[in-house]
Design a protein around this nucleic acid. Structure first.
Lengths: 382, 382
DNA sequence: TTGTACGCGTTATCAT
DNA sequence: ATGATAACGCGTACAA
């Protein structure tokens, strides 16, 4: 059994497969009668044991350590389990073994906003990866208030969670308790938390922004507007990337003017509108715009178009995030696409290395490359 | 205590508040030593009991039933708990009381796609409502394959989940097991599953579509294109709503031509592109378009614009979902906005009525009103 | 009002 | 290879 799936498959997954693989039609349309449990819960190990005519401990072994019981006995047990429609009680198992198979995902206050799918997409990837490895996913802190933070810490300190993945958020704190103080394995995705010793999966914001700016410079652009998000790593890196490209091309840093910088990402559309207002008041107008998110880029474009500007003839625009809608705008919006799926999976890998205890000198920061997707919102000038 | 928060607050929430409210700086930066547990888990009830000089059962009572213990004793216990940084073990509690405080949310395969935020937004609302009521949220089935369905059913049959909310999905089935066969309280949100006895929270698709079509007819439109989603309730209702308005106005049903109808929602953008292709081949062109989702409406608009059509002068467009990006397109996209927040909260109410056992003749279907938001993509003709 | 003792469903240890 | 039994952390009769 183990040989088939390899040594690295968690116990509960084999367990699960054993119970349901090649499962014929067992009659479980209605709950079986005469079981040990008085209430409405399903059959127990004890019921399976009685049905199979073995001891309860043998049932446990047959399910969890199949190779440690006689093949014939194992068959009997599995048949009985199937017949009764037995499903193991994960709560009892967790209590007994001292650890759960629940991973907590800490989400930012606004799960989704604007046109981007960054958080939902990473969440999906994480869920899928964890699910394949036999873990369950609990979500927390969709709203960052006191009660939410307490919930998170209760989950962590109370032993409910086996590990935590933080998506684009700071470490939860409640009074004197901090998630960092738990022995709980933690990994951050999207935001670099390595400064506080949390392994992180991030993307190469600065580098890809340099690449993008370099490309626009190659196309003849020399003056830029950068629509900024909130102060922080992302903004610093993305803005810095443009500056790097300017320096590389021998252009002065003044050639990139900045709009925004105070509002947070969920207000991206508003930031774009405000940037449009800023733009029309500029004397020496930039020919190309970089935005810190697609929301900003899209609302900027919409507003400029309604003001009579033509995109890309008058202005070239590049967004950030790779939102699906970019491809279908008019003109299609160029954007920098993050490897969300890969980042999610990498986060899970990083976490499970720690959870399953085989993380010696593993890298503390995994940096995955984003890429510029050029579309109709950009044109060469000259 | 109870009087303050009202009778309806669940036990574990009071419990929680008791422990952390007005919580001064207790020294829990490093894990306390000399505790009963040998391993790395935190302090136990037994530790609190020893610290407070009372029996373990008194600690349990002081935390779960504060009014059933002497005020002085309670103070001692709470002080001890705070000092040690005690956090109750939810797993043990669940096992003991025979039910968990975990609600499972069954999500459709694609959590998010296109520009809409329907699922993420409902999920957020549900999470928040459940969190306030003291429940934790586990997510399942982001991808609808065999292994996911099995996970869901294990969660349900294994007693991990206390209830389930199904978002825009069918009831999970695995071999002979079905989620419907569990005693587990289930509620559906977005999709009407009342036909299979699952209480559902839906919106008035057909009615709001009639309202919208009536409005466009009032503006002078007489011929429509309906861009269809996959066959199913949503599509039937939304298409039907247009037909109702036509009949009401004495216009023949042929006045609405249909495009699409085979692809699923995640392919919305593609559907819109295909609809644009269909549109240009039509002889007697409609003047207004209704789409089954904003994705379809947006990509249709983008394609038509790139073909030289002017929106809204040549064609009026109305989407469905109320995606945030609609407001910031050029022109801004009219859309039918669903009450996602309210639907999420209603789903939680419906579920908790069942979970907490006070659901006698509660309505099996809650229908919440959507509303048409008119924007620049529509104009009057004449 | 407080303490004692048992049980929730499972796994692990120890005999056999 | 299998069976009896203790223990995981907590809640709750029941007794005091």
């Amino acid at each position: 059994m183990q040989a088939i799936f390899g040594k690295r498959l968690p116990k509960f997954l084999e367990y699960d497969l054993l119970l349901h693989i090649e499962c014929g039609n067992s009659s479980r349309m209605t709950r079986a009668k005469g079981l040990s449990a008085a209430d409405s819960s399903g059959p127990l190990m004890q019921d399976v044991a009685r049905e199979a005519g073995v001891a309860i401990s043998t049932v446990s072994r047959a399910l969890a350590n199949p190779d440690r019981v006689n093949a014939k006995t194992r068959a009997k047990v599995l048949a009985a389990a199937k017949k009764l429609g037995y499903t193991p009680n994960a709560t009892a198992r967790s209590l007994r073994v001292g650890r759960s198979n629940i991973v907590m995902i800490v989400l930012p206050g606004t799960l989704a906003f604007g046109a981007g799918q960054v958080i939902p997409e990473v969440l999906r990837a994480i869920h899928q990866a964890l699910s394949e490895r036999g873990y369950n996913v609990m979500i927390a802190n969709l709203d960052r208030d006191e009660i939410s933070e307490r919930h998170i810490l209760d989950l962590a300190f109370g032993g409910t969670a086996r590990g935590a993945i933080i998506l684009s958020s700071q470490i939860p704190v409640d009074g004197s308790r901090s998630l960092a103080d738990t022995g709980l394995p933690i990994v951050s995705v999207l935001l670099d938390l390595s400064a506080v010793s949390v392994p992180s999966v991030i993307t190469n914001d600065r580098q890809v922004m340099t690449d993008a700016a370099r490309e626009l410079i190659r196309l003849g652009h020399e003056r830029f507007l950068y629509i900024a998000g909130p102060a922080g790593d992302h903004n610093t890196a993305r803005h810095g990337g443009i500056l790097d490209a300017l320096a590389e091309a021998g252009l002065p840093p003044e050639n990139v003017v900045v709009s925004g910088g105070t509002r947070n990402f969920p207000e991206g559309f508003l930031i774009g509108i405000e940037a449009a207002r800023d733009f029309v008041e500029l004397d020496n107008k930039p020919t190309a715009i970089f935005a810190c998110s697609d929301d900003m880029a899209l609302s900027f474009m919409g507003r400029m178009q309604s003001l009579g500007f033509h995109i890309p003839n008058d202005i070239s625009i590049v967004g950030f995030d790779g939102s699906p809608v970019c491809e279908f705008c008019n003109p299609p919006m160029s954007s920098i696409e993050q490897p969300l799926e890969a980042m999610g999976r990498a986060g899970v890998e990083l976490l499970l290395e720690r959870v399953e205890g085989s993380a010696p000198g593993a890298p503390r920061v995994v940096k995955l490359p984003s890429r510029l997707v050029m579309r109709g919102s950009v044109r060469a000038i000259g």
